[in-house]
Design a protein around this nucleic acid. Structure first.
Lengths: 138, 138
DNA sequence: CTTGACTCTTGAGTTACATCAAGGGTCTAG
DNA sequence: CTAGACCCTTGATGTAACTCAAGAGTCAAG
C-alpha cells in the first residue's frame, strides 16, 4: 500500500509542512529516528517519516511541548498500556489549557475594565490604567 | 509625603517582590533609571523606585512584554498625549489576549473531544487521539 | 559537461527574561 | 573588632524551539 519510493529531506519537509532544519533538529532531539542514508550521505525517508512529522506538528498545535511529544511517540508505539498513557497525557494537557484560559480570562477582564474606564486623554494622574499599575500592592 | 530615607537594592526588591538580580537587569535594560550611589558604590533608591518596580510587575502580570512596558513607562511620563498612547497599547494588549483565548478555546475543544472519545485502553490503532495525530492533513 | 538546486556537517545565534557564579568590597549588630 | 549579611561587577548559563552561516559535496535536467 505504502509506496517505497525514497524521499529526500526536502520532499518530506514539503509534505509535512516543516523546515528542513527543523527535521534535522528533531532527529538530533530524538523525535525522529535516524534515517537510512544514500552512499552520498543524503538522508532517505519513507512515508512513515512524513506521518511521524505530521504527528509532531499536530501535537505541537495542540500545545504539547517537544518533550511531551517524545513521550506520546513512545506511548503510541507501546502496544500494551500505551493508550492509557496517551489518554492521561492528553487529559493533563487539557487541564493545563483550561487553567491557562481561566488565567487569561482573569487578566482579560481586569484589563478590559481599565481600558473602558480610561478616557484616552487628559493627565497621566487621571488615567485609570496608569493608576492601577502604579498603585501600592492590594 | 514620601519619606526620603534611602533604600538598598535588597529592601526595594523585598517591597516590590522581585529579585535583586532582576532589578539590576531592569536597570541594564533601561526600565529603571540608574540610581544614585553611596560612596561605596551601593545603589540608593527611594519610594518612587518601588512604585516603578511594582508598575513593571503589574504590567508583566497583564501580559505586557518588557519592551511594551518600556513604552508604557515612557508614555506615563508624557504629560501631553501620553495617556492616549497608554490606552492604545492596553487596547492592543486586550485584543491580543482575546485572540489568544479564542485560539486556546479552539485547541481545548479539539483536545477535549479526543479525550472523551478515547477509551483509555486497547490497541493504539483504536485510540482516537493517536489516530487524529497521525491522520494525513485534512 | 555544466549549472543550479539540493544536501551535508559543525557550530553559533536568536528571543525573552532572567538567574547564577566567582571573587571581592561594605555594613552593622554584638 | 569581627562575623555574617549584604552589595558590587563581569560574564556565563538556562529554557524552548528553532534558525542560520559557512564551506563543501551531490544530483538531475538539458
Amino acid at each position: 500500500m505504502t509506496t517505497q519510493n525514497s524521499l529526500t529531506i526536502g520532499r518530506i519537509a514539503q509534505s509535512a509542512g516543516v523546515a528542513i532544519d527543523t527535521i534535522r533538529f528533531y532527529e538530533r532531539e530524538g523525535l525522529l529516528p535516524e534515517p537510512r542514508r544514500r552512499p552520498s550521505g543524503y538522508r532517505e525517508y519513507d512515508e512513515a517519516a512524513v506521518s511521524r512529522l505530521r504527528f509532531i506538528r499536530r501535537a505541537k498545535d495542540l500545545g504539547f511541548t517537544l518533550d511531551e511529544i517524545r513521550e506520546l511517540l513512545a506511548l503510541s508505539a507501546d502496544r500494551h498500556g500505551g493508550v492509557e498513557g496517551v489518554r492521561e497525557r492528553a487529559a493533563a494537557r487539557l487541564k493545563a489549557i483550561d487553567e491557562r484560559i481561566v488565567e487569561l480570562q482573569r487578566v482579560r477582564d481586569g484589563l478590559s475594565e481599565l481600558v473602558e474606564a480610561c478616557p484616552g486623554h487628559g493627565a497621566p494622574e487621571d488615567c485609570p490604567i496608569l493608576k492601577a499599575l502604579a498603585e501600592p500592592t492590594r
